[in-house]
Design a protein around this nucleic acid. Structure first.
Length: 982
RNA sequence: GCGGAUGUGGCGAAAUUGGUAGACGCACUAGACUUAGGAUCUAGCGGAGCGAUCCAUGGGGGUUCGAGUCCCUCCAUCCGCACCA
């Protein structure tokens, strides 16, 4: 048999592609463009595992396919190279993070090149390089110099705002700004000095420094974004996170909340992904209602509050229709009026509660959502609809950061309010008809209102409208839209990130001059925070600008990744982040591939920045990613051994490992007497030796009394769940003398579990191993064959032989025993052409709908058919090689050249299929009676329905099933089925 | 709690608008060639039955001549958000 020597073939073509710049893409072309993009990786020290290339292979297939279809394809790759792991390594070793980062990048690139991707490496970006982050800093500066005008509904340069201030103050300015922005008139503005003016402008800038409550992670010494936290601990490392007030740079992403939401409609993204972003933005319609305050400690509405001023408490609600059901109000413990509204009698209790709430970490608050707690302030507010007094409480189920931090509690329709009312024995007023019949009235959300004054008889939706209208007319409420999304914190107390190009004169931030970009990372002696708690940049000597101190925090990870897709278009540009003509040519990313984990991080921030650049006329599309596909994660299959854990800290304890079967039976306590004897015998034996050597006196009883815990071990030591005991004992010095208790058949059985692939779980499968053994083409085909792209699936190599065999058979069909290439020049038979055109059609349709697994199957069927026909004709092979090339570029390139084509396959054309070969003159119809298949009959395709019906009814088999009865009707579906209805 | 997804042989999975369920591959069984090779080829492979045939797409119900596919309901698993008023 001829040898399919994938190693030589793959090396040969990878070199050829590189030397001849086969995949270099031009920025101008008469061809239509196609932009296929992968989410660029963070180059971690562990290298690529088999999960990473899944999406890369899919996008590479699409890229190669599109090239063959005559598109000018942009298919780049780069590295998101600022990040925490490199920094932590730097802290431990003192080595500059750039060194590790660049080593890792080198390794990643080697691995990527081995798989045979068709990237244009001349466009590579590395976000930690000054020539890249120079533009990240530049975009930051643009954001600083812009404000959001609600009237034009876009970002505008700050100068337009200043000129409005000069003419008419900020009364008529409709901008997105801070809540505490002062009101002023033109005269005031014009009298202010520069410092005062700049201070006011900070309320409007799209990026600005601010005192913000942030997620501070003491263990990492940095601030984390909400999406970097999972279950109250940091996503990386699982360290505790606490709430802390700190000076931070912020990004006014909330200005874009509405557009980020609305644009989702037009994006070709999966529904779950859109839902995730929709929920994250969390738009809710409702109104703010003002509740006048009663005099302290008095439920009477009549008297005026001491001090005269009629203060009101504002609450946000989505259900103003239930206003007559309000029986109390609740403020967040952090609310600024808590003190003021607390009566002297309640003071002690309230202060204690607020203190306790403050000290409760976010984590505790989150995990403990069930328990009800709160305290009465002693004050009352007035329901503006019926002038009833309502007691004001403080409770931590109300969040300070959402709405106004005050809730009008309607225990009859909100479950949390209901539980609160039950717990503190507060009244419940029903307002929706039918809720009186329920144990829990809050289960009925909508219906006809009653007990509700002016809203009586209306249904909920009408009542909401009426209530808002009533409140607006009487001046105690306005309709209001609320968002769950907050402004994004843009500061990290780290070294390994982009320096923020801003310096301070006193409190006022100024931008560095554009000509001084990039503002390069300074060198520091250590990568830790300073003794005074400043970020690492505080260690840099002369970290100043014109004598003023520069910002010490660096940018978060999402800064660089929010615009890298634009840099690929024009990666070497030194005078702009990218040339407008070029970004106009490439436009949107036509296909973006990456994981779901970026739904509320990267994919939201990059839409925000892109939209901002669009507003400023710097690019021509307001959405960066037209089509998004989320490839599923490839999980690892971890192996476990079961370790007996001795209580206490005795250094002389033996290491004992029990086989899985034994553990299972011990935990179910149905170990048979015989089995127990065997275990005890082995243990006794082994322990004897151990005791003798270490002069200890462990007994079988000692061991059997201990806890057993599963422990991850390297999957390389396990085959078919059976442990290689020798390898295990050699794995770690402490296991050299381990006592291994196997099953009755002398094998030690390991447990297994499907988990995320990670170094710490010892379950990482490296693609290099697969390539070494089967070749890159097999790896590519196999990853696609594994199942639907978007699905999560554990890695297993069980089926990889089938894919490898397929490639070898392709090879063998066109080679003699001695390895000589041979194809026949004879005209292909009709049957052979049919096989070919069916495959072209299927493969094309499958790629177009991103169903790569089915197209691999189609290739296999094609090969089986050709083998059966003994077809090795050049006229069949040539188009076949082209359609297979996106999947297995190396072997097909080799065959292409053997056919005598001198150029690379990239310049070939994807062949069209010919319907004529697919249409059969006769079609075999399954014939069913009442839906059950009973016979197969052949009819010419153009035979009229009536004739088919007639012949079907005359058929003996069908007559048998009709059993003499005449049929009610006959349904003929062309090219599908004939169904006789009795 | 809210939102979303998935459920088909021993396994990974096909079935594009309702139309022969299980394509293709793995594993397994038998045979051939060879003869101690993890090679290749041929055949079989959801369950029951000698068979015609019957039963099978998480469970139950419905629409239809016909349902893996559409509707209702329940169950299980996974993911996202989580006291958002």
């Amino acid at each position: 048999m001829a040898e399919y020597n994938f190693r030589d073939i793959e090396k040969k073509w990878q070199r050829y592609w590189a030397e001849n710049n086969i995949y270099k893409t031009e920025n101008t072309s008469h061809k239509k463009k196609f932009y296929a993009l992968d989410m660029f990786p963070y180059p971690s020290g562990a290298g690529l595992h088999v999960g990473h290339p899944l999406g890369y292979i899919a996008s590479d297939i699409v890229s190669r396919y599109k090239r063959l279809k005559g598109f000018n394809v942009l298919h780049p790759m780069g590295f998101d190279s600022f990040g925490l792991p490199a920094e932590q390594y730097a802290i431990q070793t003192g080595q500059h993070p750039a060194i590790t980062t660049e080593q890792n990048i080198k390794r990643y690139k080697e691995q990527l090149k081995n798989i045979g991707f068709s990237y244009d490496w001349s466009r590579e970006v590395q976000t930690h390089q000054p020539d890249y982050y120079r533009w990240t800093q530049w975009i930051f500066m643009q954001l600083f110099d812009n404000w959001y005008n609600n009237d034009s509904d876009k970002a505008e340069h700050i100068d337009t705002l200043i000129s409005q201030f000069e003419q008419s103050g900020n009364d008529e300015v409709n901008a997105v700004c801070d809540e505490d922005t002062p009101e002023f008139i033109a005269d005031q503005w014009n009298e202010w000095n520069e410092e005062e003016k700049l201070k006011v402008l900070l309320h409007y800038r799209l990026t600005f420094p601010s005192e913000a409550v942030v997620n501070w992670c003491p263990a990492l010494g940095t601030v984390l974004a909400n999406d970097e936290i999972k279950d109250g601990v940091s996503e990386r490392g699982g360290h505790a996170v606490e709430r802390k007030k700190m000076k931070q740079w912020m990004m006014r992403i909330t200005a874009y909340a509405d557009r980020l939401l609305k644009n989702l409609e037009h994006l070709d993204w999966s529904e779950p992904m859109k839902d995730m972003q929709t929920n994250w933005i969390g738009k809710s319609y409702g109104c703010e209602l003002q509740f006048a305050l009663s005099p302290l400690n008095s439920p009477s509405p009549k008297e005026k509050r001491p001090g005269g001023e009629a203060k009101t408490l504002t609450a946000f609600t989505t259900r103003p229709d239930t206003i007559y059901g309000v029986t109390f109000m609740v403020m967040a413990p952090e609310h600024e009026w808590v003190n003021e509204l607390t009566t002297s009698e309640q003071k002690a209790e309230v202060i204690a509660y607020v203190e306790a709430a403050k000290n409760r970490s976010e984590r505790e608050r989150q995990t403990d959502v069930k328990s009800v707690s709160g305290v009465f302030t002693g004050s009352y507010a007035i329901n503006p609809f019926n002038n009833e007094p309502i007691p004001i409480w403080v409770a931590d189920y109300v969040l300070a950061g959402y709405g106004t931090g005050v809730v009008m509690a309607v225990p009859s329709s909100d479950n949390r309010d209901y539980r609160f009312a039950k717990h503190f024995d507060l009244p419940v007023t029903l307002v929706i008809e039918g809720s009186e019949q329920l144990d829990d009235p809050t289960e009925l959300k909508h219906g006809k209102m009653f007990n509700s004054g002016i809203l009586n008889g209306l249904n909920s939706d009408e009542a909401i409208q009426k209530a808002i209208q009533h409140a607006e007319e009487n001046g105690f409420g306005t309709s209001k839209v609320n968002f769950r999304m907050r402004d994004a914190v843009f500061s990290r107390q780290r070294y390994w990130g982009e320096p923020v190009p801003a310096y301070f004169k006193g409190d006022i931030p100024y931008l560095v001059d554009e000509k001084d970009l990039p503002l390069e990372l300074p060198s520091v002696d250590k990568y830790k925070p300073t003794k005074t708690g400043d970020p690492p940049l505080g260690r840099a000597a002369n970290w100043t600008y014109n004598g003023y101190p520069l910002e010490l925090t660096t940018m978060p990870g999402w800064a660089a990744s929010s615009w890298y897709f634009l840099r690929y278009m024009d990666a070497d540009n030194e005078s702009a982040f990218a040339d407008k003509n070029i970004t106009d040519y490439w436009g949107q990313v036509d296909l973006y591939l990456g994981g779901t984990e970026h739904a509320t991080g990267h994919l939201l921030y990059s839409r925000f920045w892109n939209m901002f650049l669009y507003d400023r006329g710097l690019i021509s599309h307001d959405e960066p990613f037209k089509k998004l596909i989320n490839q599923g994660m490839i999980q690892g299959v971890s192996s476990f051994v079961y370790r007996v854990v001795f209580s206490g800290d005795d250094k002389t304890m033996p290491e004992v490992f029990l086989s899985k079967g034994i553990v299972d039976r011990i935990t179910k306590s149905n170990l048979t007497r015989a089995e127990q004897d065997i275990i005890e015998k082995i243990l006794k034996n082994e322990l004897g030796g151990f005791n003798e050597k270490h002069n200890t006196s462990w007994s079988v009883e000692n061991v059997m009394e201990q806890k057993i815990i599963p422990m991850h071990i390297d999957i390389g030591m396990v085959k078919n769940d059976i442990l290689d005991v020798g390898a295990f004992k050699a794995w770690r010095p402490e296991y050299k003398e381990a006592i291994i208790i196997p099953e009755a058949d002398k094998n030690y059985l390991c447990g297994s579990e499907v988990e995320k692939m990670s170094k710490s779980k010892y379950n990482v499968v490296n693609p290099d191993e697969i390539i070494e053994r089967y070749g890159a083409d097999t790896l590519r085909l196999y990853e696609m064959f594994l199942g639907p792209l978007e699905q999560f699936k554990p890695w297993n190599t069980n089926g990889i032989d089938g894919v490898f065999k397929f490639l070898r058979k392709v090879w063998n069909l066109f080679h003699k025993e001695n390895g000589e290439f041979y194809v026949s020049d004879t005209e292909p038979a009709k049957e052979e052409l049919k096989v070919l055109h069916r495959t072209i059609k299927k493969a094309q349709e499958d790629i177009e709908r991103y169903s790569f697994n089915t197209s691999v199957s189609e290739f296999m069927i094609c090969l089986n058919d050709l083998t059966a026909l003994k077809c090795n004709k050049a006229a069949i092979l040539e188009p076949l090689v082209v359609i297979l090339s996106p999947y297995a570029p190396h072997i097909t390139e080799e065959l292409w050249h053997k056919l005598g084509h001198v150029t690379s396959i990239t310049q070939a054309e994807f062949p069209g299929y010919n319907e004529a070969y697919l249409v059969e003159a006769e079609h075999e119809y399954p014939v069913s009676v009442n839906g059950k298949m009973r016979a197969k009959l052949k009819f010419p395709l153009d035979m009229p329905k009536e004739d088919i019906e007639k012949q079907v009814l005359e058929d003996q088999v069908i007559q048998k099933w009709l059993d003499g009865k005449p049929p009610k009707k006959v349904i003929v579906v062309p090219k599908k089925i004939v169904n006789v209805v009795v």
